[in-house]
Nucleic acid binder design. Structure first.
Ligand SMILES: Nc1ccn([C@H]2C[C@H](O)[C@@H](COP(=O)(O)OP(=O)(O)OP(=O)(O)O)O2)c(=O)n1
Ligand SMILES: [Mg+2]
Length: 1148
DNA sequence: ATCCTCCCCTAC
DNA sequence: TAAGGTAGGGGAGGAT
């Protein structure tokens, strides 16, 4: 028996017993004064104990049967917390309201325990409330043993004492609830079915240890269970964990078994690459968690020797694409983001069109609908298997034990199957479960119809997910009621409610008949109410939660039923004795806020009363972009890990570009197999139990370059020095986002090109000048060409040219903004130069024993962190200064040499182009074009799209049906940036699909969106039409973005285009397209002036940027020179003029 | 007090 | 076999 524990308890007991109310009047009632939260809790505890003394003294007649006992009650109990408290205290026991880790209880009273709590309390005697009740009844202290809490299958003892101390340090929370490991993933899944050799019985604490006969609990998902293994090396999944690794220290302390990472296994050999940091000592200590003598790398090598395994793990270069293609969660997230963007657009248009001006009377009643497909994936799946209707059905990738069930129908749910459950558990409770495959395109189709129907409802729409949306129909309802929504006229309210029901009814049937799947609708006076009403509405029904029923209805829900209250919050609340929502009402707001935090506490308090002030439709700008993979990660050596990180960065880059942003902070997240986790998790290629680590860098200047991201991320990975074989998950995230400013080049790549060209005429394999990164990270392969994203994307490849025109975003650069930029940058640069370049901080205990970051000792900010665009935008002198700075600091860098040159070089300052020009464009459009167009568009520019000659061609041209994975690279950021947002999304989506889709189910969002520009207004959508991914060719050549001044937009676009390709010249196709366009302007639009203006504008740009001497030094890598481009335009205009029979134009 | 950084948590 | 992603809210605790 833990003497420590008892000692502690004794002292507590003593304190409790001796405490007398009068003794200290002072401090415990003093409010804040000093001390923080901890102090507050301390006072509170003392205060409560005072009350205990009071109770005790007033119950002198009770037998002190609980003397020596200190009880803490956890969670919701049958005799209430208050009753138990009274019983215990009045019978001589001590009572602890809170477990603070410093004082200990002798017993924990609980009806049931969550795995988390179970782990937390594993050292206590955990008993049911009946123990107290029965003891009182019996007038003696009954043996606690008979009242042990055993439910939920899991042993409350589990590991309990064994390592006591050590384990405790790393595993035990100091804070009352939650986290037993500083950062364990899925901590919820405790060592549940540790039944393996794991929970070896421990001697020494007989009375607390008695093997708990765990009843066969409901299937519990755990990363410790033993699923079938498909590996040849089915080693015993046993865990000989005696090392309780917590942080670096733990690792440190272990005697280092010299087990070189790079083992004899050839496959494991780490390429000459990164020899330094990482490879050396891969935390040898971690091996003990596995079978003897096998490093995790060796294990993985063995594992991957099976080609099928290999193919399905990160080692496969196509893994990322393949994985994301099949990942339902990835799809859900992607869909959500897309929907959000589209709905924002829709809302904007709607509000613009003066319609739907909601007056939003403050105190008025609201009517909100929450619409949601019933078991969405499963319902769609059943459409194709009508025979299974009525039978239990689930959607999953396979029938293996670790396959996750995305969705199951209600028949299956009746048997206990739940969404998100592992197959193993599902089959246990429902052996006749029918498992159907995913059909992502079908979900998109259904969703499109769903949203189409919803958007036809007059109201404000907010997407929640692919199968779920909120609609504020207050306007319609109040109108029907004939009041302003504040009065309490019964007639009005009745009519309003009837209207809401009617709308919902109609909507449900519409969606049902469109999709064949049923939806349910919850209606309430706010989002909360609508949401909780929805659960009652399901399946295939609707329910309106009317005001007079709100309190009762909500009160009877479980707190976990409230939105935003999940496992953890639910547990915290349960600790407060709150299980049902109505219980919340017994608590003061203060209690809630002090236990849960100010916002959360207040929110729960409100929710308990049916209050939710959140409005529908308020969505904001994105704050982060990330990509992660936590499945299939099995590396054999460090270079594989690094390659993978770079791939992820490439993916991240792609996503950043899609969203037209770059970011200043890059974070790497890694999951590492926990020390006590087996090499083979229960879930096939899953991550198993892991610890996670994060590290981030502040980039001096926002970037989205694959190259920069890759280098930084790899550097961070190295600094962790985690044995590659133990990696289980990797993610990269960009935060501190900034809009990509097309003005300054449209994209990194674009300007990189410029820089490159100036640097060396050799366009291919051009050393990325901006890449002086090499400077600080002495690179192995200078010649590393292929690896670099940018070159792939733009420099070396012709961008995808959907419209026959590749183009740049018009410049929106506010001259003033640009003018201000330098200072900003200047200070940043200076600051960087002086401070440590990297603001790295690894929060999580850094696993490696190794001193991290040895190589990156440069005090300079890697030049790579400078955004070339920004550099280019600097005034010449300042730029030179900055570059000088780098040059000095880095005398050596061979590859850095070329870098500065091009930058500083430009005798023809590119600046003038930006600085002096802006005023020229006459149109007022200049600044933020749309004061009105807010939201997303704040980021976007006024875009235009050249009319394509023939839509059909697009299809073919769009890309040969090459199943190649990386087709995304074919879309250049410039091109994307130049597209109107809706079109851009469409293109991207189409692209994504192309990459992602196995079979061509061309489900293009905006099928018949033509009537409106809305992607959604698509009713029936003829099948073939779906292939059309761009709006139909307009009557006359025009800009798709009507709201803006055509000429100025055109000029902006031309300017950006020119800016991006100043050095290498335009692509012939672009020139042709523009030429064709101007001709059409002359001929079709009959606006000669405009055509001439555009042409002259380009002439001016070209002239202005002409190198001082030796014209044309820069060839035309892209095949055409700017002079030729100008001539093309002139020729086109002339042709048009001639066609119209007008007098020739003089361009001089 | 208020901000910032680093997480945890939640939802689909 | 299996595809355990991802963005945003917000709390804890340190910096300002
Ligand atoms: N853990 C989860 C939860 C959901 N989903 C997917 C499949 C679901 O069909 C879809 C929608 O989620 P819902 O929460 O709306 O669940 P269902 O629509 O399946 O059921 P219902 O809405 O009837 O409760 O998201 C998933 O893949 N994994
Ligand atoms: Mg649903």
């Amino acid at each position: 028996m833990g003497s420590l524990l008892d000692e502690k308890s004794n002292s507590v007991r003593k304190r409790i017993e001796n405490h007398v109310f009068e003794d200290e009047v002072g401090e415990e009632y003093e409010a804040s004064a000093f001390g923080g939260f901890g102090d507050y809790m301390r006072r509170k505890k003392i205060k409560l104990q005072n009350l205990d003394a009071e109770i005790r003294s007033s119950s002198a007649d009770c037998l002190p049967i609980f003397r020596g006992v200190v009880v803490h009650v956890n969670g919701y109990t049958q005799p209430s917390l208050q009753d138990l408290h009274r019983m215990i205290v009045s019978h001589g026991g001590g009572f602890l309201q809170y477990l603070d880790g410093k004082t200990s209880a002798t017993h924990i009273v609980a009806s049931s325990l969550t795995p988390k709590k179970r782990e937390e309390f594993r050292r206590y005697r955990i008993v049911k409330p009946a123990w107290v009740v029965e003891s009182v009844k019996a007038k003696r202290l009954l043996p606690w043993d008979a009242f042990r809490v055993v439910d939920e299958g899991q042993n409350q003892k589990v590991l309990k004492f064994d390592n006591g101390r050590v384990l405790n340090e790393s595993n035990t929370p100091q804070s009352s609830y939650r986290d037993q490991t500083n950062s364990s993933w899925y901590t919820s899944q405790l060592k549940a079915s540790t039944q393996a050799q794991n929970g070896r019985p421990i001697s020494g604490t007989p009375d607390m240890d008695p093997a708990v006969d765990q009843a066969v609990a409901p299937p519990t998902q755990s990363d410790y269970g033993d699923f079938p293994s498909f590996t040849s090396l089915d080693e015993p999944n046993e865990i000989s964990n005696k090392s309780a690794r917590s942080g670096p220290e733990a690792v440190e302390e272990r005697p280092r078994t010299p087990t070189p990472l790079v083992h004899s296994l050839e496959a494991i050999h780490t390429p000459s690459k990164s020899p330094p940091v990482v490879s050396q000592a891969p935390s040898p200590s971690r091996r003990d968690a596995s079978a003897p003598e096998v490093t995790s790398e060796e294990y993985n090598a063995q594992l991957l020797s099976d080609p099928r395994m290999r193919n399905n793990s990160v080692v496969n270069p196509e893994f990322i694409q393949q994985y994301y293609r099949e990942s339902r969660l990835h799809h859900l997230s992607t869909w959500k983001a897309e929907l959000k963007a589209q709905l924002q657009l829709a809302a904007k248009e709607k509000s613009q069109s003066r319609l739907s001006r909601r007056k939003q009377i403050p105190g008025a009643r609201r009517y909100i609908m929450h619409v949601d497909f019933d078991c969405f994936f499963a319902a769609v799946a059943v459409l194709k298997h009508p025979d299974l209707d009525g039978k239990p059905v689930a959607v999953a990738h396979g029938t293996g034990s670790g396959s996750e069930i995305a969705s199951c129908n209600y028949t299956a749910r009746a048997k206990g199957v739940k969404n998100g459950m592992w197959m193993k558990g599902a089959l246990q409770s429902c052996p006749d479960l029918n498992v159907l495959p995913y059909d992502f395109p079908a979900y998109e189709d259904a969703s499109r119809k769903f949203y189409s129907a919803i958007l036809s409802v007059e109201g404000i729409v907010q997407s929640v997910s692919i199968d779920e949306a909120l609609v504020d129909i207050t306007g319609q309802c109040l109108e029907a009621g004939g009041s302003d929504g504040r009065g309490v006229s019964e007639g009005s309210i009745y009519r309003e409610q009837a209207k809401a029901d009617e709308i919902a009814e109609r909507l449900r049937h519409a969606i049902r008949s469109e999709t064949g799947c049923s939806v349910s609708v919850g209606i309430g006076g706010n989002i909360l109410q609508a949401k909780v009403a929805l659960r009652k509405a399901k399946p295939a029904g609707q329910f309106q939660l009317k005001p007079d029923m709100v309190l009762e209805f909500i009160g009877n829900l479980t707190v976990q039923d409230l939105p935003g209250v999940g496992y953890s919050l639910g547990a915290k609340l349960e600790e407060l004795g709150i299980k049902f929502v109505k219980d919340v009402r017994d608590q003061s707001k203060e209690r809630l806020t002090s236990a849960l935090g100010p916002k959360t506490g207040a929110r729960i308090w409100d929710y308990a009363r049916g209050i939710d002030r959140t409005e529908v439709g308020n969505e904001v700008m994105r704050k982060s972009v990330s990509a992660e993979v936590n499945w299939g990660i099995r590396f054999v050596n460090q270079s594989q890990a690094e390659d993978f990180v770079r791939s992820l960065c490439e993916e991240l880059h792609r996503r950043l570009v899609e969203n037209l942003v770059k970011g200043k902070q890059l974070t790497l997240k890694v999951m590492r197999r926990s020390a006590d986790a087996p090499l083979e998790p229960v879930k096939h290629l899953g991550h198993g139990k892991c610890d996670t680590f994060n590290k981030s860098v502040l980039l001096g200047v926002a970037s989205n370059s694959t190259d920069v991201l890759g280098k930084e991320a790899v550097s961070m990975l190295k600094s962790f020095a985690i044995s590659p074989g133990d990696l289980r998950g990797i993610g990269v995230q960009m935060t501190k986002l900034e809009p990509l400013k097309p003005a300054t080049g449209g994209s990194i790549e674009a300007s990189q090109k410029q820089l490159n060209f100036k640097a060396s005429p050799a366009r291919k394999k051009a050393q990325h000048t901006h890449d002086p990164d090499d400077l600080e990270s002495p690179r192995k392969e200078e010649t590393d060409t292929v690896n670099y994203g940018p070159s792939l994307n733009d420099s070396n490849q012709k961008p995808l040219n959907i419209s026959g025109t590749q183009f740049i975003m018009p410049s929106q650069t506010d001259p003033q903004v640009v003018a201000e930029l330098p200072n900003d940058i200047r200070s940043k640069l200076v600051a960087q130069g002086k401070q440590a370049p990297r603001g790295e901080r690894s929060t999580s205990p850094c696993p490696p024993p190794r001193r991290s970051q040895p190589p990156v000792a440069a005090e300079l900010p890697p030049q790579s962190q400078l955004d070339p665009d920004t550099l280019a935008a600097l005034p010449e002198d300042l730029r030179a200064e900055v570059l000088d700075y780098y040059n000095q600091r880095d005398p050596a860098g061979p590859q850095t040499a070329p870098a500065p040159a091009p930058l500083a070089a430009p005798p023809p300052p590119p600046n003038p182009l930006r600085f002096k020009k802006p005023t020229s464009p006459p149109k007022k459009k200049r600044g933020r074009p749309s004061t009105k167009s807010t939201g997303t568009t704040t980021l976007r520019q006024a875009n235009f799209l050249f009319p394509r000659p023939a839509t059909p061609t697009l299809s073919e041209e769009r890309r040969e049906p090459s199943p190649q994975p990386d087709t995304a690279d074919e879309v250049s950021p410039e091109f994307l940036a130049a597209l109107p947002e809706d079109i851009r999304r469409e293109v991207l989506e189409e692209h994504r699909r192309a990459r992602t889709r196995q079979r061509p189910s061309s489900a293009t969002q905006r099928t018949a969106g033509q009537q409106q520009t809305r992607p959604f207004g698509a009713p029936p959508a003829p099948a073939q039409e779906r292939r059309l991914r761009l709006p139909p060719l307009p009557e006359r050549p025009t800009f798709t973005s009507q709201k803006l001044s055509a000429l100025s937009d055109l000029r902006d676009a031309v300017q950006s285009w020119h800016a991006a390709f100043t050095e290498e010249g335009p692509f012939a196709e672009d020139v042709e397209a523009l030429a064709l366009y101007v001709k059409r302007v002359v001929v079709d639009e009959r606006d000669l002036d405009k055509a001439v203006s555009v042409t002259k504008w380009l002439m001016w740009l070209v002239e202005d940027s002409r190198p001082t001497e030796a014209g044309g030094q820069r060839g035309s890598p892209n095949g055409v020179s700017w002079d030729e481009a100008v001539r093309s335009l002139q020729r086109s205009v002339a042709e048009g003029v001639e066609e119209r029979g007008l007098p020739p134009v003089d361009f001089s």
